[in-house]
Protein backbone atom coordinates (compact mmCIF):
# COMPACT_ATOMS: atom_id res chain seq x y z
CA UNK A 1 0.00 0.00 0.00
CA UNK A 2 1.35 3.42 -1.00
CA UNK A 3 0.61 5.29 2.26
CA UNK A 4 2.58 8.35 1.22
CA UNK A 5 0.33 8.72 -1.83
CA UNK A 6 -2.82 8.37 0.28
CA UNK A 7 -1.49 10.99 2.67
CA UNK A 8 -0.53 13.28 -0.23
CA UNK A 9 -4.01 13.11 -1.79
CA UNK A 10 -5.73 13.47 1.58
CA UNK A 11 -3.60 16.48 2.59
CA UNK A 12 -4.05 18.06 -0.83
CA UNK A 13 -7.83 17.83 -0.55
CA UNK A 14 -7.89 19.08 3.04
CA UNK A 15 -5.65 22.00 2.01
CA UNK A 16 -8.21 22.85 -0.67
CA UNK A 17 -10.86 23.03 2.06
CA UNK A 18 -8.67 25.33 4.15
CA UNK A 19 -8.24 27.61 1.15
CA UNK A 20 -12.01 27.76 0.66
CA UNK A 21 -13.24 27.91 4.24
CA UNK A 22 -16.06 30.32 3.39
CA UNK A 23 -17.46 27.98 0.76
CA UNK A 24 -16.64 24.68 2.46
CA UNK A 25 -17.59 25.31 6.07
CA UNK A 26 -19.17 28.70 6.71
CA UNK A 27 -21.70 28.64 3.87
CA UNK A 28 -23.30 25.31 4.90
CA UNK A 29 -23.34 26.42 8.55
CA UNK A 30 -25.08 29.67 7.66
CA UNK A 31 -27.66 27.96 5.45
CA UNK A 32 -28.36 25.37 8.17
CA UNK A 33 -28.75 28.14 10.71
CA UNK A 34 -31.28 29.75 8.39
CA UNK A 35 -33.24 26.48 8.32
CA UNK A 36 -33.36 26.58 12.13
CA UNK A 37 -34.49 30.18 12.13
CA UNK A 38 -37.20 29.61 9.50
CA UNK A 39 -38.42 26.08 10.29
CA UNK A 40 -37.42 25.88 13.93
CA UNK A 41 -38.34 29.30 15.29
CA UNK A 42 -40.66 31.03 12.80
CA UNK A 43 -42.74 28.09 11.51
CA UNK A 44 -41.81 25.55 14.15
CA UNK A 45 -43.31 27.71 16.86
CA UNK A 46 -46.73 27.02 15.37
CA UNK A 47 -46.18 23.26 15.04
CA UNK A 48 -46.97 20.94 17.91
CA UNK A 49 -44.39 18.52 19.16
CA UNK A 50 -43.67 15.49 16.99
CA UNK A 51 -43.96 12.32 19.08
CA UNK A 52 -42.99 14.22 22.20
CA UNK A 53 -40.02 16.06 20.64
CA UNK A 54 -40.13 19.79 19.94
CA UNK A 55 -40.21 20.52 16.21
CA UNK A 56 -36.94 22.49 16.35
CA UNK A 57 -35.15 19.50 17.90
CA UNK A 58 -36.96 17.05 15.61
CA UNK A 59 -35.47 18.55 12.46
CA UNK A 60 -31.86 18.54 13.75
CA UNK A 61 -30.97 15.00 12.52
CA UNK A 62 -32.61 15.71 9.15
CA UNK A 63 -30.71 18.95 8.71
CA UNK A 64 -27.40 17.29 9.59
CA UNK A 65 -28.14 14.52 7.08
CA UNK A 66 -29.10 17.11 4.45
CA UNK A 67 -25.70 18.81 4.83
CA UNK A 68 -23.82 15.55 5.20
CA UNK A 69 -25.23 14.03 2.02
CA UNK A 70 -24.95 17.08 -0.21
CA UNK A 71 -21.47 18.01 1.02
CA UNK A 72 -20.10 14.47 0.86
CA UNK A 73 -21.24 14.27 -2.75
CA UNK A 74 -19.98 17.71 -3.77
CA UNK A 75 -16.62 17.35 -1.96
CA UNK A 76 -15.79 13.99 -3.51
CA UNK A 77 -17.20 14.70 -6.96
CA UNK A 78 -15.36 18.00 -7.23
CA UNK A 79 -12.17 16.42 -5.85
CA UNK A 80 -11.84 13.90 -8.69
CA UNK A 81 -13.57 15.95 -11.39
CA UNK A 82 -11.26 18.94 -11.10
CA UNK A 83 -8.03 17.06 -12.00
CA UNK A 84 -9.92 15.66 -15.00
CA UNK A 85 -11.03 19.16 -15.97
CA UNK A 86 -7.60 20.79 -15.59
CA UNK A 87 -5.67 17.80 -16.97
CA UNK A 88 -3.63 17.26 -13.80
CA UNK A 89 -5.07 13.75 -13.62
CA UNK A 90 -2.09 12.69 -15.76
CA UNK A 91 -0.04 12.74 -12.57
CA UNK A 92 -2.45 10.47 -10.74
CA UNK A 93 -2.55 8.02 -13.64
CA UNK A 94 1.22 7.90 -14.07
CA UNK A 95 1.95 7.52 -10.34
CA UNK A 96 2.59 4.16 -8.66
CA UNK A 97 -0.79 4.19 -6.96
CA UNK A 98 -3.60 1.69 -7.18
CA UNK A 99 -7.11 3.00 -7.57
CA UNK A 100 -7.91 1.76 -4.06
CA UNK A 101 -5.37 4.24 -2.73
CA UNK A 102 -6.81 7.00 -4.90
CA UNK A 103 -10.29 6.30 -3.52
CA UNK A 104 -9.08 6.17 0.09
CA UNK A 105 -7.38 9.54 -0.41
CA UNK A 106 -10.24 11.35 -2.11
CA UNK A 107 -13.16 9.69 -0.34
CA UNK A 108 -11.37 9.83 3.02
CA UNK A 109 -10.83 13.58 2.65
CA UNK A 110 -14.38 14.21 1.43
CA UNK A 111 -15.87 12.16 4.29
CA UNK A 112 -13.60 13.90 6.81
CA UNK A 113 -14.76 17.31 5.64
CA UNK A 114 -18.40 16.25 5.85
CA UNK A 115 -17.92 14.84 9.34
CA UNK A 116 -16.28 18.08 10.51
CA UNK A 117 -19.18 19.97 8.97
CA UNK A 118 -21.72 17.63 10.61
CA UNK A 119 -20.09 18.22 13.99
CA UNK A 120 -20.16 21.99 13.47
CA UNK A 121 -23.83 21.89 12.46
CA UNK A 122 -24.63 19.77 15.49
CA UNK A 123 -22.90 22.35 17.69
CA UNK A 124 -24.72 25.16 15.87
CA UNK A 125 -28.04 23.36 16.44
CA UNK A 126 -27.23 23.25 20.14
CA UNK A 127 -27.37 27.05 20.12
CA UNK A 128 -30.97 27.01 18.85
CA UNK A 129 -32.56 23.97 20.53
CA UNK A 130 -31.82 21.77 23.54
CA UNK A 131 -30.15 18.62 22.19
CA UNK A 132 -30.22 15.11 23.50
CA UNK A 133 -28.50 12.14 21.91
CA UNK A 134 -29.81 8.82 23.18
CA UNK A 135 -27.23 6.66 21.42
CA UNK A 136 -24.14 8.76 20.69
CA UNK A 137 -22.03 5.88 19.35
CA UNK A 138 -24.73 4.71 16.99
CA UNK A 139 -25.23 8.33 15.95
CA UNK A 140 -21.49 8.55 15.18
CA UNK A 141 -21.60 5.22 13.35
CA UNK A 142 -24.48 6.44 11.15
CA UNK A 143 -22.65 9.69 10.54
CA UNK A 144 -19.43 7.98 9.43
CA UNK A 145 -21.18 5.32 7.35
CA UNK A 146 -23.30 7.94 5.56
CA UNK A 147 -20.35 10.28 4.97
CA UNK A 148 -18.25 7.48 3.48
CA UNK A 149 -21.09 6.05 1.35
CA UNK A 150 -22.12 9.36 -0.14
CA UNK A 151 -18.52 10.45 -0.66
CA UNK A 152 -18.09 7.26 -2.69
CA UNK A 153 -21.28 8.14 -4.57
CA UNK A 154 -19.85 11.63 -5.17
CA UNK A 155 -16.60 10.09 -6.44
CA UNK A 156 -18.62 8.09 -8.98
CA UNK A 157 -20.46 11.23 -10.10
CA UNK A 158 -17.12 13.05 -10.43
CA UNK A 159 -15.74 10.28 -12.63
CA UNK A 160 -18.92 10.10 -14.71
CA UNK A 161 -19.29 13.85 -15.25
CA UNK A 162 -17.58 15.35 -18.26
CA UNK A 163 -18.83 18.89 -17.68
CA UNK A 164 -19.87 21.10 -14.77
CA UNK A 165 -23.57 20.71 -15.57
CA UNK A 166 -23.41 16.94 -15.13
CA UNK A 167 -21.49 17.46 -11.91
CA UNK A 168 -24.46 19.33 -10.47
CA UNK A 169 -27.20 17.31 -12.17
CA UNK A 170 -27.58 14.39 -9.76
CA UNK A 171 -27.01 16.35 -6.52
CA UNK A 172 -29.52 19.04 -7.48
CA UNK A 173 -32.16 17.08 -9.34
CA UNK A 174 -32.12 13.77 -7.47
CA UNK A 175 -30.32 13.91 -4.13
CA UNK A 176 -31.69 17.20 -2.78
CA UNK A 177 -35.36 16.32 -3.55
CA UNK A 178 -34.84 12.85 -2.03
CA UNK A 179 -33.46 14.42 1.16
CA UNK A 180 -36.25 17.01 1.41
CA UNK A 181 -38.86 14.32 0.77
CA UNK A 182 -37.10 11.79 2.98
CA UNK A 183 -38.40 13.09 6.27
CA UNK A 184 -35.88 15.82 7.03
CA UNK A 185 -38.63 18.12 8.19
CA UNK A 186 -41.44 15.69 9.01
CA UNK A 187 -42.19 12.19 10.16
CA UNK A 188 -43.55 9.76 7.57
CA UNK A 189 -46.39 9.05 9.98
CA UNK A 190 -47.62 12.63 9.38
CA UNK A 191 -48.38 11.74 5.73
CA UNK A 192 -51.48 10.08 4.25
CA UNK A 193 -51.23 6.28 3.85
CA UNK A 194 -50.65 6.61 0.08
CA UNK A 195 -47.70 9.03 0.49
CA UNK A 196 -46.38 6.96 3.37
CA UNK A 197 -46.10 4.03 0.94
CA UNK A 198 -44.47 6.22 -1.73
CA UNK A 199 -41.98 7.58 0.82
CA UNK A 200 -40.86 4.05 1.64
CA UNK A 201 -39.26 3.91 -1.83
CA UNK A 202 -37.04 6.84 -0.93
CA UNK A 203 -33.71 5.41 0.33
CA UNK A 204 -32.84 8.62 2.15
CA UNK A 205 -35.83 8.11 4.45
CA UNK A 206 -34.05 5.11 5.95
CA UNK A 207 -30.89 7.11 6.64
CA UNK A 208 -32.71 9.98 8.31
CA UNK A 209 -34.96 7.63 10.24
CA UNK A 210 -32.04 5.64 11.62
CA UNK A 211 -30.07 8.76 12.39
CA UNK A 212 -33.03 10.36 14.15
CA UNK A 213 -33.52 7.18 16.17
CA UNK A 214 -29.99 7.56 17.56
CA UNK A 215 -31.06 10.99 18.89
CA UNK A 216 -34.61 10.50 20.14
CA UNK A 217 -35.40 6.80 19.65
CA UNK A 218 -38.02 7.91 17.11
CA UNK A 219 -38.03 6.13 13.76
CA UNK A 220 -40.23 5.64 10.71
CA UNK A 221 -38.59 2.25 10.09
CA UNK A 222 -36.62 -0.02 12.36
CA UNK A 223 -32.99 0.93 12.93
CA UNK A 224 -31.83 -2.46 11.62
CA UNK A 225 -33.51 -1.82 8.27
CA UNK A 226 -31.93 1.63 8.16
CA UNK A 227 -28.49 0.14 8.71
CA UNK A 228 -29.08 -2.56 6.12
CA UNK A 229 -30.10 0.03 3.52
CA UNK A 230 -27.03 2.17 4.02
CA UNK A 231 -24.70 -0.85 4.00
CA UNK A 232 -26.39 -1.97 0.77
CA UNK A 233 -25.86 1.48 -0.74
CA UNK A 234 -22.21 1.43 0.35
CA UNK A 235 -21.73 -2.00 -1.24
CA UNK A 236 -23.37 -0.82 -4.48
CA UNK A 237 -21.08 2.23 -4.64
CA UNK A 238 -18.02 0.08 -3.98
CA UNK A 239 -19.05 -2.26 -6.79
CA UNK A 240 -19.42 0.64 -9.23
CA UNK A 241 -16.05 2.09 -8.17
CA UNK A 242 -14.44 -1.34 -8.63
CA UNK A 243 -15.90 -1.50 -12.15
CA UNK A 244 -14.65 2.01 -12.94
CA UNK A 245 -11.12 1.03 -11.97
CA UNK A 246 -11.27 -2.22 -13.83
CA UNK A 247 -12.38 -0.57 -17.06
CA UNK A 248 -10.75 2.86 -16.68
CA UNK A 249 -14.18 4.34 -17.45
CA UNK A 250 -13.94 8.12 -18.05
CA UNK A 251 -10.47 8.17 -16.47
CA UNK A 252 -8.11 6.52 -18.92
CA UNK A 253 -7.92 7.16 -22.65
Amino acid sequence: MNWYAIRAIYNFEMARTRRTLMQSIFAPVISTSLYFVVFGAAIGGRIQQVDGVSYGAFIVPGLIMLSLLTNSISNASFGIYFPKFTGTIYELLSAPVSMIEVVIGYVGAAASKSLILGAIILATAGLFVPLEIAHPFIMLFFLILTAVSFSLFGFIIGVWADNFEKLQLIPLLIVTPLVFLGGSFYSASMLSPFWQTVTMFNPVLYLISGFRWSFYELADVSVGVSLAVIVLFLAACMAVVWWIFKTGYHIKN
Binding site: N2, Y4, A5, R7, A8, I9, N11, F12, A15, E91, L92, A95, P96, V97
Partner: peptide, 14 residues
Protein backbone atom coordinates in the same frame (compact mmCIF):
# COMPACT_ATOMS: atom_id res chain seq x y z
CA UNK B 1 3.32 22.30 -1.91
CA UNK B 2 2.65 20.98 -5.39
CA UNK B 3 6.17 19.55 -5.79
CA UNK B 4 5.89 17.95 -2.33
CA UNK B 5 2.51 16.51 -3.36
CA UNK B 6 4.08 14.89 -6.42
CA UNK B 7 6.82 13.32 -4.30
CA UNK B 8 4.25 11.83 -1.93
CA UNK B 9 2.11 10.58 -4.80
CA UNK B 10 5.08 8.61 -6.08
CA UNK B 11 5.51 6.93 -2.71
CA UNK B 12 8.48 8.83 -1.36
CA UNK B 13 8.81 10.09 2.20
CA UNK B 14 8.82 13.89 2.56
Amino acid sequence: ATVSFSRGLFGKAP
